[in-house]
């Protein structure tokens, strides 16, 4: 069957199935199981209302349980096992972890990930804040914002191609087509550089891609937060003779700290999971490995499920503090 037809069929079956399920289950509840009439009408209505939320939630709980909760447990289990020929598993305790910790490539990935985690959220939030503040009172501010926000729609892979063109290096005697080398030579550089092959610094050239993508997100949210600041606080500062920098750093920033933290943590999560950019641009060569790509290498190239799962658990472990913090905040808000 043609995939497009299959897709259409899936939409019909999927959507029809969902609607049918919700409608049918609801009908079953009201018309067959607990009729809101007869001698037990009151009790039946109560019972139906006790069950109905679970009908509404059932597909979501199933999907979440199967596709997100179960894998956490299963991956944890796999990380203690070793796959033997013939679909057999042997319990090896922490061996996958100790083996992984002995690999220099893992520590390279860890170092790079930490570097990404320090630089990308800070730079994206910083640029976002700058863009939000600068465009705020500008007549063409909305157009500027649109353009800075635009890379959000671009895939990591597309962005990888875009930045590869920027970093492109051609031999010394012909015209440079990568703008970075063009500018480098224009401002006194000696020879064209292979930017992605300079160990350590190439990490920053990869980070630039993610910063470019995430800045718009930070800008949009921080811009809304800046607009939410009560005017009186700024006016009072102006009357007291504060200069624009003081207003920005001492009046505005403290009032949007909580939003900055939210933006920062959201970008941190995205950074932790970064895979496509490294996969497409260097594939971890020249000391640019990161955890997600390391894990992919182990799982699908080396076919080592034990170590791959161990690497995935490391990523999970790094996410956990943010997870706990988010849940804690959400619960606090609901009270």
């Amino acid at each position: 069957m043609h995939p497009a037809l299959q897709g259409l069929l899936t939409i019909i079956i999927g959507v029809g199935g969902c609607v049918g399920y919700f409608y049918g289950a609801n009908l079953l509840l009201d018309k067959v199981l607990f009729k809101p009439s007869g001698p037990n009408a009151g009790r039946n209505i109560n019972r139906a209302n006790q069950i109905r939320p679970w009908i509404f939630l059932m597909p979501a709980i199933l999907a979440l349980g199967l596709y997100l909760a179960y894998p956490v447990v299963a991956t944890l289990r796999l990380s203690f096992l070793e796959r033997l020929p013939g679909n057999q598993y042997a319990f090896v305790g922490l061996e996958n972890y100790t083996q992984m910790f002995a690999e220099p490539k893992f520590w390279e990935a860890m170092r790079n990930n930490v570097l990404w985690l320090v630089v990308v959220p800070a730079a994206a939030t910083g640029f976002g804040l700058l863009a939000a503040q600068l465009t705020d009172r500008l007549r063409w501010g909305n157009i500027a914002k649109s353009i800075i926000f635009m890379p959000m729609a671009i895939s990591f892979v597309g962005a990888a191609v875009i930045f590869k063109l920027i970093y492109e290096a051609r031999p010394e005697d012909v015209a440079q087509i990568g703008i970075l080398n063009h500018l480098y030579l224009l401002f006194g550089g000696e020879t064209p550089q292979q930017w992605l092959q300079i160990p350590f610094w190439n990490n920053f050239f990869l980070m630039a891609v993610l910063i470019w993508i995430q800045t718009g997100f930070a800008m949009v949210i921080l811009s809304a937060a800046l607009r939410g600041i009560p005017e009186e606080t700024v006016e009072a500062a102006v009357i007291d003779g504060a200069n624009p920098f003081q207003i920005f750093f001492k009046i505005k920033i403290p009032q949007i700290t909580s939003t900055i933290v939210v933006v920062w943590t959201t970008i941190t999560i995205a950074t932790l999971k970064v895979f496509d950019i490294v996969f497409a641009m260097t594939n971890g060569q020249w000391e640019t490995q990161v955890l997600a790509n390391y894990m992919y290498d182990k799982l699908f190239r080396a076919n080592d499920w034990g170590m791959g799962s161990a690497a995935a658990m490391i990523i999970m472990l790094m996410v956990t503090p943010i997870l706990v913090w988010n849940v804690y905040n959400a619960r606090k808000e609901m009270k």
Binding site: T75, L299, W305, G308, A312, L323, N326
Partner: peptide, 15 residues
Amino acid sequence: VGLLVVPLQLALIPL
């Protein structure tokens, strides 16, 4: 809220 941040990398092999 918790599942919001679970990396999908964990889901690859089990699923």
